[in-house]
Amino acid sequence: MSRGDHDDASSDPLYERLKTFEGRANTTGGRGKDPVNEPMIRHWCEAMGDAHPAYAGPDAVAPPTMLQAWTMGGLSGHAGLSSAYDEMSALLDAAGCTSIVATDCEQEYLRPLRPGDVITFDSLIESVSPRKTTKLGTGYFVTTRMDVRVDGELAGTHRFRVLKYAPARAGRKPESKPKPEPAPLRPRPVINRDNAGFWEGVAEHRLFIQRCTGCQTLRFPWLPGCNACGGQDWDTVEASGDGTVHSYVVMHHPPFPAFDPPYAVGLIELAEGVRMISNVVGAPYDKVRIGMPVRLEFQRYDEDLELPVFRALPGSEG
């Protein structure tokens, strides 16, 4: 998401009030509800399709990207922890910035986490941007930082950034003669040297899966090295196109240009054993089910963009 255009901060009294929250503690003395443990590591790895041997066995470590998972409070939250963030959020709500969208996160890993480690954490509001105008609306980017520790030693840092904004449509008066606008385009995929071969295959209506030439492990999405043996050499196999819905979500809100919610996004298990995320088409969004058989096809969205999607087989609706 674009960080938007700067507005004049000198004429924004709300921004001056928001700046007073910078550096304020959001959580002090937080404690993970559970120690680092093998069942949660196993569930995480199964969900991610990550079979790296470092995450299992007597010398197992937790995947670094689980850093935030050990600090989460679940549905019941963390009792007794004050939150400057809630106070600041109420201030933004009162100013009309009632919508929120996550924009990005950054993590730094300083030491591995192992089963049995007890997690403590502190967090603060690190920064608030001046008022900015984006396609979603006008608001403020808020960055929080969480420091995660084990026995007082810093294990990692997690920064999370959101946009708290007033929706662009709020209060907009309809024009007497609306001006026709060109149809919005879907975002373009990021193509780099690690995944260029995949997109070249898509252009030929072929779905390629990477295969390590050392241990023969298939992997998807494309990576520069094998997550099983660490090998750097690889070739490809072409997917048959058969698959099943392993899991799915239905996207309802917020609407973005070029997307028409609600629609189903599936985690598709291909016949070859790897999984990929794509749209499920050919069935109503509320009829998509886990285990539904699907078939690969390529859908054109505009003259420059064609993407792999998965069509529900006839008679497979739940």
Results as ranks from 00 to 15, higher is better:
A60G: 08
H43Q: 06
P284E: 10
A25I: 06
T244A: 14
T213G: 10
P257V: 10
L270A: 14
V309W: 05
G137Q: 04
R145Q: 15
R31M: 09
L75G: 05
G318P: 05
P180F: 07
E317S: 11
G241Y: 03
K19Q: 12
M88S: 03
K33F: 00
C226R: 00
W234R: 09
T244L: 11
G291H: 05
D235N: 11
E303F: 14
G197Y: 01
T65V: 14
A79Q: 12
A51K: 14
V245Y: 13
L91E: 08
D8G: 06
V190M: 06
G30N: 01
T98L: 02
G315S: 07
T236P: 02
L154W: 10
L218I: 08
P261W: 12
L110A: 07
L113M: 10
L124S: 09
G49T: 09
F220Q: 10
L307W: 08
E204L: 06
K177Q: 13
L218W: 14
L267H: 12
G73C: 12
K135V: 09
A170S: 12
G29Q: 11
R131L: 12
Q107N: 13
A155V: 00
L305F: 11
T144R: 15
G201H: 01
G266E: 07
F198M: 04
P180V: 13
T134P: 04
D117K: 00
Y248T: 06
D50F: 02
I41Q: 03
G243I: 12
V162G: 02
P189L: 03
T28G: 04
R219K: 14
V148S: 01
A94T: 07
L223P: 01
L91V: 03
P184G: 06
G214S: 14
I125A: 02
E38T: 14
T98K: 07
T71A: 15
S11M: 11
H6T: 06
H158Y: 14
P112R: 02
S76G: 07
S129L: 02
S123W: 13
Q68E: 08
C105I: 10
H52R: 08
A62L: 12
V101E: 03
S2N: 12
P262Y: 11
H6I: 05
E38C: 01
V118P: 00
S2P: 01
T157K: 15
I277Y: 04
A258S: 15
G201P: 10
E106G: 04
E106F: 05
Y285K: 07
D117L: 00
P63Y: 09
M88R: 11
C105L: 12
K33N: 00
A84T: 08
F160R: 14
E16S: 13
R211S: 06
V245N: 06
A283T: 15
L154T: 05
M40D: 13
V294S: 08
S83C: 08
R131H: 09
K33V: 00
G116P: 02
E106L: 09
R161N: 11
V150Q: 00
K287P: 00
D34V: 03
L91M: 13
Y15F: 15
C226P: 03
D7S: 10
H52T: 08
R275A: 11
D147V: 07
A264E: 02
A62D: 03
P187Q: 07
R161K: 10
L124E: 15
I100R: 13
G116D: 05
F21C: 02
W199N: 04
R42Q: 13
K135L: 14
F198I: 10
N279P: 03
W199M: 06
T27Y: 06
Q210V: 02
R186N: 08
